[in-house]
Design a protein around this nucleic acid. Structure first.
Lengths: 173, 173, 173, 173
DNA sequence: TATGAATGAGTATTCATTCAT
DNA sequence: GATGAATGAATACTCATTCAT
C-alpha cells in the first residue's frame, strides 16, 4: 500500500472515530491526510468504500487480538485473558476501537460473528469449570467487557482499572 | 405544545434514533412530520436545538423510569428492580432509548449524572447485603444492564429474555 | 395613524437607513417596532409598500425644509440659507436623510424633481447677483451640499462645521 | 487567475453595482458568470469574501487612476487634472465605480485613506497658488468631483459635460 | 499515481407573506 | 386592529464525486 493511501486510511479512521462517519467531509479527510481530495476516489470507490476498507482491516486486527485466547488450553486462563482484554487496548488503537463500537449501531457493520470464536471458547471454559449455564456466563462476560471497553475509550484507562482485579477475583473459583 | 411542534419532535426522535443525527436532513424530518421545513426553525432555533429539545424531554422520562427503584426500601428488591429495567422498555420507547445510547458518544450529551441516583441506591443495597465491594458491584450491574439494553434495542426483547432470570438468580444471595 | 402603524414606520426607517432595505428582515422590523410580523402586512401591502410609505412621508418633510428658502426674497440670503441647510439637520432626522441618500441609487426613488424648486430659486439668485452662469452655479451648490450632507450623516456634524463659514464667505460677493 | 474565477468576479461586480450586494443571489452570480454555484465558494470563502476580493482589486485600479496627478509638478495642472477625473471614467468601468460609491455607506468599505494622497497633492497645489485656505479648498474639490462622478454614473457623461469647462475656468487663477 | 478545478445535488436556514383566530 | 402559527420559495453554503491534465 502506498504511503498516501495509508495516510488517507489513517486520517479517515481518526476522523470517523472522533466525529462520526456522516459528520466528516471527504475534503477534511484529504486535508488531514495531506493529499488531494480526488485521490480518495482513485483509491476508494466512494466515501463508503473508504469506510469499508477500514472495517476490513479491522477484521484482521481483531482476530490477532483474540488469537492468544483461542490458543489457550487452561479454562481458567481463558477467562482471565478475556477479562484482561479491554485493559490492554493501546492508546494508539483507541480510534480503531471507538469506530468499532460506534458502528455497532449500523446493522451493516455490526457482525456478531467476529466475537463468535471467543464466545465459544469462553463457553467451553465455563463448562470445563462446572458453571451451571456456560452459554449465558460467556455472553455476560462479553457484555461486561464491552461496557468497560466503551468506558475506557470514553474516559480513559485509569477510570476503569479498578475493575481489573475485581473481575479477575470474581471469576476465580 | 401545538400539534405540529409535537409532530416535529416525534419525527425527529424516530429519524435521529434510526439513522443518526447527522444523517437526517431537516427536509426529511419535515416530510415525516407532515409540516413545512420552515416550521422546524420557527419552533427550534436550529437542527441542534431540536435535538436539545428532545434530550431535555429525556431527562424527565428517565427520572420517571428510575423513581420506583429510588423509593424501594428493601435492598434485595432494589437490585431486582434494577435488573429488570431493560426488559421492561416498551416497544414505543425504543427510539427514545436508542437515541440515548447512540448519543453517549457525544460528550455533550453523555452525562453520567443521570445514572447517579440509581448507582448510589444500588451501592447502598449491596452494602446492606454485605457485599465486599459495593461501589464496583453497583457499577458492574449498570454496565451489564447497558449492554443488555443495547442488545434488546438492536435485536429485540426476545433475544435477551434468557438473561432475566439468570441475572436475578445470580444476584439472589 | 395608529400608534402601532407609526411604530412600524419608525422602526423600518431606522433599520432601512442603517442596514439597507434588502438587509433588513420584516421579522426584525416587527421586533424593533414591538408588533407582530403579520401586522406589517395588514398596514402595508408588502415590504416594498412599507418603504414607499416612508418615502411618501419624505416628500412632505423635504418640502417643509425647503420652504424658508423658497419664500426668501433677498438673493444673497437665498444662497446663504441654502448653504446652511446641511448644517441644520437635526440628529433625530439623520436616519431619514441617510435613507434618502442611499436610495438615490435606485432609479425608482431618485427623483430630482424634489430639488427642482430650490434649484430654480438658486438660479434666480445667482442671476440677480450677476453671476455669469447661474444654472451651473446653482447646480454646483447643490452638489457641494449633497457631499457635505453625506459627510455629516456619516461622520457627524462636527467634522464638517469648518465648511460652514468657508462656503458662506466664498459665496459672499 | 483562472478564466472562471475571473468570470465570477466580473459577474459579481456587474450585479453588485447595479442591484446592490444584498439584493444579488449567489445563484444569479453563478448563472451570469456561467459557472456552477459551488465554484463561487471554492474560490471565495463566502459571498462577502467575493466582495472583498473585488474591493481589493479596486485599490490597485484606483491608485492607477490617481498616479498621473501625484506625479504632476505644476500646481495649476494638478488641479486641472483632478477636475477632469470624473469626465474620463470609461464606460466599462462604470460598474466598478458605482460599487465604490454605493459601498461608501458601509463603514467597512469606506476608507478615506484611498483619497488621502490626492487630497494632499491638491492641498499643496492650492497652497502654491496662494489660496487662503488650501485644506478646505482641496476637500471641496473632492466633494464636487464626487457629486459629479455620481451624477455621471447615474445619468451618463453627457448630462455633466457642461461642468468640465465651467470648473476648469473657475479654478483658473 | 496524483492534483485541483469544477460540478450539481443537497443542506440548514431565512424570509416575505398568508391565514385562521 | 392584532396576533402568531404556518408556509414555500429562495438563500448562502457544503459535499461527494468527476474529470482533464
Amino acid at each position: 500500500m502506498t504511503d498516501k493511501k495509508e495516510n488517507i486510511i489513517q486520517a479517515a479512521l481518526e476522523l470517523f472515530a472522533s466525529e462520526g462517519y456522516n459528520a466528516v467531509a471527504t475534503s477534511k479527510i484529504a486535508k488531514v491526510a495531506g493529499v488531494s481530495e480526488g485521490l480518495i476516489f482513485r483509491h476508494f470507490e466512494n466515501k463508503k468504500g473508504l469506510l469499508d476498507a477500514i472495517m476490513q482491516d479491522a477484521e484482521i486486527r481483531i482476530s490477532q487480538v483474540f488469537a492468544p485466547i483461542l490458543f489457550e488450553l487452561d479454562p481458567q486462563k481463558v477467562i482471565q485473558k478475556t477479562l484482561e482484554l479491554p485493559f490492554s487496548i493501546e492508546q494508539k488503537e483507541y480510534n480503531f476501537w471507538k469506530l468499532q463500537y460506534k458502528l455497532k449501531w449500523e446493522p451493516e457493520y455490526h457482525n456478531p460473528r467476529k466475537m463468535k470464536p471467543v464466545l465459544d471458547k469462553l463457553e467451553w471454559a465455563f463448562a470445563e469449570l462446572g458453571y451451571q449455564n456456560p452459554p449465558l456466563e460467556a455472553e455476560l462476560v462479553i457484555y461486561i467487557l464491552d461496557s468497560i471497553a466503551i468506558a475506557i475509550l470514553r474516559e480513559g484507562l485509569q477510570s476503569q482499572l479498578k475493575f481489573k482485579s475485581f473481575l479477575v477475583s470474581k471469576y476465580n473459583s
